[in-house]
Design a protein around this nucleic acid. Structure first.
Length: 433
RNA sequence: GGAGGGGUGGCCGAGCGGUCGAAGGCGGCGGCUUGCUAAGCCGUUGUCCCCCGUUGAGGGGGACCGCGGGUUCGAAUCCCGCCCCCUCCGCCA
């Protein structure tokens, strides 16, 4: 026999029952097909059986008490034991059905995505996302700006060919000043997060248990997106969010300790199974990339303010780097499974002439908190689920792209922004070869 | 990898087939005492689910002692599997 764990779900049954209309509408807004009604039917059946079991158990408990008493008095208890056994058998019978139903219901519930916040624009695809603001000048070049893969190869800082033969497509080797730049970006991101924005640095395991993947809501829906170890027991992080969401699993946090801010640098691994032929050139879409993640545990009433703050924390980094970007509010149809509201931050990459998502900042409300059973105690003693927020601050590849494409010079060299120089031994540019 | 030990409430820690939701302590909350502080005394204090009632009124029942399963009329207590922690030995960056 193997053991399994019941994972709490965002839309637990009570929520489902009490917010039927709201949930139905939310799913519709997302364009998500789901048969709530049949699920509610099952839940009703489940509760009926539960009540029956409860009553039988109450009966048995009374009998047990009596047996206890009579036995002490040395009286005959044979008949009562027989009766109790009968009840036990009946309970077992019903319990079988209840268990099956429960598992069925729980599995279904795990497939329900988060309900969008009311401020999220309704739409079916990225077309309907809303640009909230734009920062920085999109620079005019007096020459034709090169793409990062041209620059990277010419300068000898990115090596696609050898990475390909070593690991396959969608892998890259950073070399020399390229490797240094990559490392500098990670350090810079972490320093801004910890020293300026008050996040506590975490360096988590890169492999996590299946249970944790359920907690962050990467399972069950995104199994095919993740790499896992051969025995299928451990998952490589597709994002540090998957680790951080589980940081306070099964804990009861103190109200005074909230909000908690965490940041973590980790490599991230994604199979990109559904994106054949998309972004195949360069480092826009890689199987492995580096990211500094921001994560918060907050009180429910503060999470939306904290969301705005997290977005501006991520923006601040790009401002310091002098990279033009825009902030996009995702519409209902373009949001991730666990998110109730998401902003993307897209950097301008003049070489590929595209906006590239360098950060995605989401409020998951209590969606992950329910799955990971992360709660806090109010001053009045009441327990409540926390809200969780995650965001990139930032992902390196696309920042790397925007950086070298924006800072390329006519002679083929790349200027290093002032703020990065101290992480790169003081050099001012990556010289042309 | 081998050999042991252990996981109990917010925390520490007893219990090792019925009288245990679970002693005791700490912490929390309420009250008394108190010139202030410290202390003392008394009381209180878990979570989840279901049903009826309510919609910040309650009442009844059930479950929960790492997780899952088994034995039993009855399991925190016995048995099996899994997860996690600790100690010792071996191996190793």
């Amino acid at each position: 026999m193997f053991s399994f764990y019941i994972i709490n779900t965002m839309i637990d049954r009570k929520t489902l029952r009490e917010n039927y209309e709201k949930i139905k509408e939310g799913l519709k807004k997302r364009g998500y097909e789901f048969d709530i009604d049949s699920l509610l039917e099952k839940d009703k059946e489940y509760r009926k059986l539960l009540t029956e079991i409860n009553e039988l158990k109450a009966k048995r408990n009374r009998l047990t008490d009596e047996i206890k008493k009579l036995k002490r008095e040395g009286k005959d208890i044979g008949e009562l034991i027989e009766k109790s056994r009968e009840i036990g058998n009946k309970i077992e019978e019903i319990e079988e059905d209840v268990k099956n139903l429960e598992k069925e219901i729980e599995n279904k519930l795990l497939e329900i995505p988060n309900i969008p916040h009311e401020s999220v624009p309704v739409g079916s695809s990225s077309e309907e996302n809303v640009v909230v603001r734009e920062w920085g000048e999109r620079k005019e070049f007096d020459f034709e700006p090169k793409s990062h893969w041209e620059l990277g190869e010419k300068l000898g800082i990115l090596d696609f060919k050898r990475a390909g033969s070593m690991s396959g497509s969608r892998f890259v080797i950073y070399k020399g000043l390229g490797a240094l730049l990559e490392r500098a970006l990670v350090q810079f991101f972490l320093d801004v997060a910890t020293k300026e924005h008050g996040y506590t640095e975490i360096f988590p395991p890169i492999l996590v248990k299946e249970e944790s993947a359920y907690g962050s809501a990467h399972l069950p829906k995104f199994d095919e997106e993740m790499y896992k170890t051969l025995d299928e027991k451990l998952y490589l992080l597709p994002t540090a969010e998957m680790a951080l969401a589980n940081l306070h699993r099964n804990e009861i946090l103190r109200e005074d300790d909230l909000p908690l801010y965490y940041t973590a640098y980790t490599p991230c691994f994604r199979r990109e199974a559904g994106s054949y032929g998309k972004d195949v050139r360069g480092i826009i879409r890689q199987h492995q990339f580096n990211k500094v993640e921001l994560f918060k545990f907050t009180k429910p009433e503060e999470s939306y303010d904290e969301l705005e703050k997290m977005v501006s924390d991520a923006e601040r980094i790009l401002q310091k780097l002098g990279i033009p970007y825009r902030v996009v509010l995702l519409c209902t149809g373009d949001m991730g499974f666990a998110a109730a509201k998401t902003y993307d931050i897209e950097v301008w990459a003049p070489g590929v002439k595209r906006w590239l998502e360098a950060s995605s900042v989401s409020n998951c409300e209590n969606f992950q908190a329910k799955r990971t059973n992360t709660r806090f105690r109010r001053k009045d003693g009441k327990l409540e689920y926390v809200h969780t927020l995650n965001g990139s601050g930032l992902a390196t590849p696309r920042t790397f792209i925007a950086l070298i494409e924006n800072y390329q010079q006519k002679d083929g060299s790349i200027l290093i922004p002032e703020v990065l120089r101290k992480y790169m031994g003081g050099i001012e540019k990556i010289p042309a070869q």
